[in-house]
């Protein structure tokens, strides 16, 4: 991995954010919403509206508005919310923190479950354990988050009363209370990824265990544990890094649904309400932040992969 590659990869992140910004700005421009009306209300006078439009630059050509907005974003200014009148940036970034807590827990939970599941299915290929894992993963990839969430709330919260059905308390405020409310959302949002990643781990490991170098390792008389862990798993789990990183896209989508259902004040919920209220600056900023999160995670995953797998010669 060369400095050249890292440079290229960083340039790509900026290109991604540029395209996303153009796209999201374009969409929000076409959206049938008049920011001035939204801020001042339906009863505002024509003069007042016109004055506000002038002040907000809404009468400028679209590209000037874009440049103005993009310039602001580059300086960390995402504009002000049309609904609350508050700056968008700080509110969204604190919401992002909440969402990342949820996503982070989900990732860890997913890895703890999906990796052993995939490994067990692969080494017990064709045996009951494999069939059970594969059954679970077929069910898992076929349940949308809102179904899992609704069923989970029905069972765990309503019928058994084990956990609170919704709500969010920051972990810094009340760790155990917060954790208790995070359990259901974390489980729900990771179901799909558990199913997907365990299947990937299984098929990667099955492929690796059929390679010549695994045969060679066995025929050197190495202990089966060493063959599996030192020779097999290492090679099978490397591609999983990339798959998990790409799944972060799903994860972020799932976060939107789950935050909505469990009333978690994260970035997904902010986005949903912004979309319903046509709060353009919040939509723009929210999408940018999501895309940036995805890009950075994938960049990190690529670096990690290249660092672990010395074969990859990026130029």
């Amino acid at each position: 991995m060369s400095a050249n590659y890292i440079l290229k990869r960083i340039a790509l992140i900026f290109y991604t954010l540029f395209i996303v910004s153009v796209l999201v700005f374009g969409i929000t421009q076409i959206l049938p919403a008049d920011a001035a009306v939204m801020m001042l209300g339906e009863n505002a006078t024509q003069e007042a509206l016109e004055a506000l439009r002038q002040r907000m630059g809404l009468n400028d050509p679209v590209w000037m508005q874009y440049l103005h907005w993009a310039g602001g974003v580059l300086q960390g200014d995402f504009g002000t919310s049309l609904r609350t009148g508050q700056p968008v940036g700080p509110a969204l970034f604190s919401a992002l923190g909440t969402s990342l807590t949820l996503a982070g827990f989900a990732l860890v939970f997913m890895l703890i479950l999906a990796m052993p599941m995939g490994v067990i299915a692969a080494i017990r290929r064709g045996k009951p354990a494999d069939l059970i894992v594969s059954f679970i993963s077929y069910i898992g990839v076929s349940l949308p988050e809102f179904v899992t969430a609704t069923l989970a709330v029905m069972l765990v919260a309503d019928m058994w009363g084990l956990l609170p059905p919704a709500g969010y308390i920051p972990l810094s405020q009340d760790f155990w209370g917060g954790l208790e409310r995070l359990i259901l959302p974390v489980v729900v949002v990771s179901v799909m990824m558990i199913a997907h990643v365990s299947r990937m781990v299984r098929s990667e490991l099955v492929d690796v265990m059929h390679t010549d170098y695994i045969r060679a390792a066995r025929l050197k008389g190495l202990h089966p544990r060493r063959v599996l862990f030192r020779h097999g798993l290492r090679n099978a789990l490397l591609p999983t890094i990339t798959i998990v990183a790409l799944d972060v896209g799903y994860l972020l989508g799932g976060v939107i649904v789950v935050e909505e259902i469990f009333s978690i004040p994260g970035i997904g919920r902010s986005l949903m309400s912004a979309i319903q209220n046509r709060d353009l600056p919040v939509i723009q900023a929210g999408v940018m932040i999501m895309a940036a999160t995805y890009s950075i995670v994938n960049f990190a995953a690529d670096l990690m992969y290249a660092w672990l797998d010395k074969r990859i010669q990026y130029d």
Partner: peptide, 22 residues
């Protein structure tokens, strides 16, 4: 393809939400 990659940075549910709201 770089542009396609860029669009893929928006989760598909979010992209669908944006298009529907549009």
């Amino acid at each position: 393809m770089r542009t396609v990659d860029a669009v893929m940075a928006i989760p598909s549910l979010l992209l669908a939400l944006l298009v529907v709201s549009l």
